[in-house]
Amino acid sequence: NITNLCPFDEVFNATRFASVYAWNRKRISNCVADYSVLYNFAPFFAFKCYGVSPTKLNDLCFTNVYADSFVIRGNEVSQIAPGQTGNIADYNYKLPDDFTGCVIAWNSNKLDSKVGGNYNYLYRLFRKSNLKPFERDISTEIYQAGNKPCNGVAGFNCYFPLRSYGFRPTYGVGHQPYRVVVLSFELLHAPATVCGPKKST
């Protein structure tokens, strides 16, 4: 009989979020998941679920829940969905086509923008091939755009693969920082350890 609540607040209220190319993952297990707390949290810009209804989450049990978190621009949030393409979905964070879970995003301009620009948040701009679902690539190898080998030196046709967002408070909404948490639900042939409040007695 599990009684402790799942530590969703640790994920959602973290002081610093990860850059999207180096997205953070927390495994959540052996706890009671009260999703209504999240669902009623006012400032969400997006709360979209795939393969599961957000209002039914509290009735369900899962083997594991993974909480992935990172920061992207407002106009990139739409790429955090199954079957998407674009710089983020291709080179930074890719969801599987059969994704079961929820994508939760909110504007973090007050936290993550600075006058003069916040350059701490990076994304991958160049990559030889697209990421596989949930693949994480933190390499900083110089990207070779031409035929000539770069030998690890940036220059003509040789690019550092990461780019900084440089968030400023005055940017338009599409270019403002958004914090994103992706909850993915794993249902294995194993005992369920993460259940909603109704199922955990």
Rank of each mutant, 00 (worst) to 15 (best):
N1Q: 09
I2L: 13
I2Y: 12
T3C: 05
N4S: 11
P7Q: 10
P7R: 12
F8M: 06
V11A: 02
F12W: 02
F12K: 01
A14W: 00
A14F: 03
A18L: 03
S19W: 00
A22D: 11
A22L: 06
A22K: 11
W23G: 04
N24K: 15
R25W: 02
K26F: 06
N30W: 04
N30I: 00
N30V: 01
D34G: 02
Y35P: 08
Y35L: 15
S36M: 07
S36I: 03
Y39N: 15
N40E: 12
N40P: 08
F41Y: 15
F47Y: 07
K48Y: 05
K48D: 08
C49M: 00
C49I: 00
Y50V: 02
Y50M: 02
G51M: 01
G51K: 09
S53I: 08
K56G: 10
L57F: 06
L60G: 07
T63I: 07
T63H: 09
T63P: 06
V65K: 01
A67V: 10
F70N: 02
I72V: 15
G74A: 07
N75C: 11
N75I: 08
V77W: 02
V77H: 02
S78I: 06
Q79T: 03
A81S: 06
P82W: 00
G86L: 05
N87L: 14
Y93A: 01
K94T: 06
L95R: 00
L95V: 11
P96D: 04
T100Y: 11
T100S: 07
T100Q: 09
G101F: 00
V103G: 00
V103M: 02
V103E: 00
I104M: 09
N107F: 02
S108P: 03
K110H: 15
K110E: 15
D112C: 00
D112N: 01
K114I: 10
V115C: 08
V115A: 14
G116H: 12
G116F: 09
N118T: 10
Y119S: 14
Y119H: 15
Y123V: 08
R124P: 03
F126S: 15
F126E: 14
F126Y: 15
N130D: 10
N130M: 10
L131Y: 02
K132A: 11
E135Q: 10
E135K: 05
E135Y: 04
R136G: 03
D137R: 00
D137H: 01
S139R: 09
S139Q: 09
E141A: 11
E141L: 08
I142F: 10
Q144V: 08
G146E: 09
G146V: 06
N147I: 11
K148C: 09
C150S: 06
N151V: 10
N151Y: 10
F156V: 14
Y159E: 15
F160E: 15
F160R: 15
Y171Q: 15
G172L: 10
G172F: 08
G174L: 13
H175Y: 13
H175L: 11
R179P: 02
V181H: 01
V181R: 00
V182W: 01
V182Y: 00
V182L: 01
L183K: 00
S184P: 00
L187H: 10
L187E: 10
L187T: 15
H189M: 10
A190I: 08
P191H: 12
P191M: 07
T193W: 07
G196P: 13
P197A: 15
P197C: 15
S200M: 14
S200L: 13
T201K: 11
